[in-house]
Write a protein that binds this DNA or RNA. Structure first.
Lengths: 132, 132, 132, 132
DNA sequence: GTGGTCTAGACCACA
DNA sequence: GTGGTCTAGACCACG
């Protein structure tokens, strides 16, 4: 789980997205507790408040829920909900790419080629950091 | 050419991107002049300063160049340069989508399916506005 | 007697309120003993410490009193005191509702209508959980 | 517009509720700008971050929307949406009061009496502060 | 120990 | 000037 402090995307959203992915990939399962705010903050080298904000985001989405004095837990529908969310993100990015390509006159075949290359590439450290 | 004032993407970058696309699609050809700063500002309903920043961006990229007292002109290599830039944008978005999908455990086949749907969809409504 | 762990209202206050209601409704009568701390904790599925705090609250109010080694007993004036307390709670909630309505420009007639609907509704599902 | 720092209700929620009321009562109308974060913070004697959080809440509700570098504006559906929200709040409080009364054995007639007294009382500084 | 709120003060991008 | 993010550090209630 890595954060890019130089990105234009706010850190707290990056964290939220990372956790969402982790929930979708069942790294954290429904009923399980997430790392505590403080531990997560130490691990990610950020301020606990920033992690808090990320967790807030997920709580509002209903992906996780807090239990007073105990911790934050993955909701029952968390896994499927996160998986659906992930599909949405993928779809949005692909659609945006297609849209941008079309606007610039890129042919559908060219785009298919680019996509094939993207998905064929090994997952070896992508860090494509779409923004900045 | 439309701007989304509600997006998280800065307006000046939206404008720059739009112009880049237009140059790539040869709406503006090398040697041609871009709309004047104030005309563009009026058309887009934004502050001239904002258009200025967009033009600055493109000048820095070498896509266009200013001619004292005359206006801004598309550079000779502008078209090809913008086209290459567009390919880069497309590639980045696709790679980002693939990366996000992988992190959430989405299979390659699922992603191929989503992509096929994206590229098959008619270009009617644009503005999928990936970011807010 | 049910507890909502997801509410913003502290569990120990929820418990205290429930017991207060029970005393007011004469489920527990003066001189009678309340369920033991640990039995109550088991029944409510909460930490005994939490029940303890609830009992503390009620002792402070003079609604119940402890008898060394025997348990907690409802005070002589417990029933009437709890009934008065309940009236206060009801009054406070109504006043708060009226105040909030007024601030938002809701007319008195509209509020009367809403109130009539509230009190006419059957007592089936409880737990309207005003707070989260 | 007044804040009670001693309440158990977080300040930022108090502020959000106050603004909601103000929007419902058309103190701020659709298209109008709210007081800036800093000005509001000064007026309420709280930290700008706290006001920010309150505004965030309202933005998420769609009651207001931010415009980069310009300010925060009341949304078109803001007034009606806030009015509906206010009715919900009133309803919830009344229902909660009725529920609490019933649980404690308060008769419907007694509650009607209490309600009548609440709504008959002049709006002269209520400050009934339902919580703490 | 946990999450939640608040302050103080800083820095940034945007218009 | 505006809103938005982040840090540092404090305090609180809860279990």
């Amino acid at each position: 789980m890595k954060i890019d402090p130089g990105s234009h995307v706010p850190i707290y959203l990056q964290i939220a997205a990372e956790i969402r992915s982790a929930v979708a990939a069942e790294v954290y399962r429904p009923g399980e507790a997430l790392p505590s705010l403080r531990n997560m903050a130490i691990e990610l080298q950020v301020n606990p408040n920033t992690v808090q904000r990320a967790y807030d985001e997920l709580v509002r989405d209903g992906l996780i829920y807090p239990q007073r004095g105990k911790g934050l837990f993955v909701a029952d529908q968390g896994t499927t909900s996160a998986q659906n969310g992930a599909l949405d993100v993928v779809r949005k990015l692909f659609e945006e790419g297609v849209r941008a390509g079309r606007a610039a006159g890129v042919s559908a075949d060219q785009m298919r080629e680019i996509f094939a290359a993207s998905i064929a590439a090994p997952a070896n450290r992508g860090a494509t950091s779409h923004d900045q």
